[in-house]
């Protein structure tokens, strides 16, 4: 599935963003990646999405190794990994359906199948009635649902979510979390980066990785005590 082995990432000006991080995310797992701002959560997500390469160590995603995958083959990795962001990154001036259809079209879904699949994906995220609404007419929570529908377009095996509830109110956050659990229940792994520890505590069955200054300081499956996380315990 996703395996990081002794991964380090050093930027020329910023220095180390990650240092010797190793973990293995299994198929169908739900995991939180926590840590303060600047702890390396987004860098980890980018490395898994292969938007960046590690300076040391190896990232393996569904059989593709960061050491061997070529620029030409990156699209194969990207189709196996869905990605949602805090700021949704939808195309303005297009409807919810058009945003999802866009992802399907550009990844080679046959034209006649695009609209039906886009509708099905929007239904899956509970937005079938808002398919024709323009992005700016949707609430934050609804926009994030469109982004999730788009991320599911290529039936990925894992959904990466980088602070997906960061811009949402409590009610919308709850709805998005329920959606993530639904998605995970259907067999897809979910790795969600968040600094919201309150949110993490609400889902004790989820696996938790914690980063601090680029180092993995806690993995709930490896911990001797269930509340051994330095931050979770201290909070």
């Amino acid at each position: 599935m996703i395996k990081l082995t002794n991964v380090s990432k050093e930027y020329p000006k910023r220095g180390f963003a990650l240092r010797d991080v190793s973990f293995h995310l299994q198929k169908g797992e739900f995991a939180f990646l926590t840590g303060h701002s600047g702890s390396g959560k987004s860098t980890t997500m980018r490395l898994i999405h292969m938007a960046d390469r590690p300076t040391a160590g190896e990232v393996r995603v569904s059989g593709y190794s960061s050491e061997r995958v070529t620029e030409r083959d990156l699209w194969k990795v990207r189709r196996r990994v869905g990605f949602v962001f805090q700021d949704f990154r939808l195309l303005p001036g297009r409807t919810a359906q058009e945003n999802v259809a866009f992802a399907l079209e550009v990844t080679g879904t046959p034209t006649r199948a695009v609209q039906a699949k886009a509708q099905r994906l929007l239904s899956q995220v509970g937005l079938s009635t808002k398919a024709g609404a323009f992005v700016n007419e949707l609430s934050g929570g609804e926009q994030q649902r469109v982004a999730i529908a788009r991320a599911l377009a290529n039936d990925p095996f894992v959904l990466l979510a980088d602070e997906p509830t960061g811009n949402l109110d409590e009610r919308a956050t709850r709805g998005i979390m329920e959606l993530f659990w639904d998605i995970q229940a259907k067999g897809m792994a979910v790795l969600m980066a968040t600094h919201d520890l309150e949110l993490v505590r609400r889902f004790p069955s989820a696996r938790v990785f914690e980063l601090d200054q680029g180092q993995l300081v806690y993995d709930s499956t490896q911990a001797v005590e269930p509340d051994a996380s330095p931050t979770l315990r201290a909070d």
């Binding site: 990795v77 990207r78 189709r79 195309l91 866009f102 992802a103 550009v106 990844t107």
Partner: peptide, 17 residues
């Protein structure tokens, strides 16, 4: 640029972009 970014994000081939 937003469209190009999304295309890469979801795995469009470079030739397609």
């Amino acid at each position: 640029r937003d469209e190009i970014y999304i295309m890469r994000l979801v795995g469009a081939k470079n030739g397609f972009i």
